[in-house]
């Protein structure tokens, strides 16, 4: 059931990324190109996604045990630090020059889009390089250690 829900979520997210235009590098860059011919479409993607997710997140906090076997993940609300700022700026530079971010890149692999495959391989190297630099494979994570599920998934 866990795997079914997770794969369904991935499938729906992929369709959303395709429909919204997030998988088109040119469209992403046109959104970031505020000094040129600006395409504000991606602001609508964010509005739709955040709108739905925030309502559901809010409602779920009123449920004692989530919906199915779901339990709300405990999320670290850490301080705003330098790695957050530097990391997000660096992410933005990579996102801007290519027009690709991790979700659409994986969708692109499924579509047989070769640049996405190259991107994801280099993405993995970038992640490994960060892990190597910081000494431990798992640095502080936004989502704290997973809570054991009741029973097998």
């Amino acid at each position: 059931m866990t795997y079914l829900l997770a794969s369904l979520s991935g499938l729906i997210m992929g369709c959303g990324l395709i429909l919204s235009g997030m998988t088109a590098p040119g469209k992403v860059q046109a959104f970031l190109d505020v000094t040129g011919a600006w395409d504000p479409s991606l602001a609508f993607v964010m509005a739709g996604a955040i709108g739905v997710a925030s309502i559901v997140f809010r409602l779920s906090s009123r449920l004692p045990n989530g919906l199915l076997n779901g339990r709300a993940p405990t999320l670290a609300s850490g301080a705003i630090d330098t790695p957050l700022i530097v990391g997000s700026l660096l992410f933005g530079v990579g996102w801007g020059i290519s027009g690709i971010c991790p979700g659409p890149a994986l969708v692109g692999i499924g579509a047989g889009y070769l640049p996405s495959t190259v991107f994801v391989i280099c993405l993995l190297f970038g992640m490994e390089f960060h892990a190597w630099l910081s000494g431990s494979p798992v640095s502080g994570t936004e989502e704290t250690s997973p809570t054991p599920w009741p029973g097998k998934p």
Partner: peptide, 26 residues
């Protein structure tokens, strides 16, 4: 299409969160 696609992304995140208590961060 952007708004509708966004809604789908939001639904996917909601499904993962409600269903198995995880955050849909790719």
């Amino acid at each position: 299409s952007a708004l509708l696609g966004g809604v789908l992304i939001g639904l996917a995140a909601a499904l993962l969160y409600l269903g198995i208590g995880r955050i849909a961060g790719v």
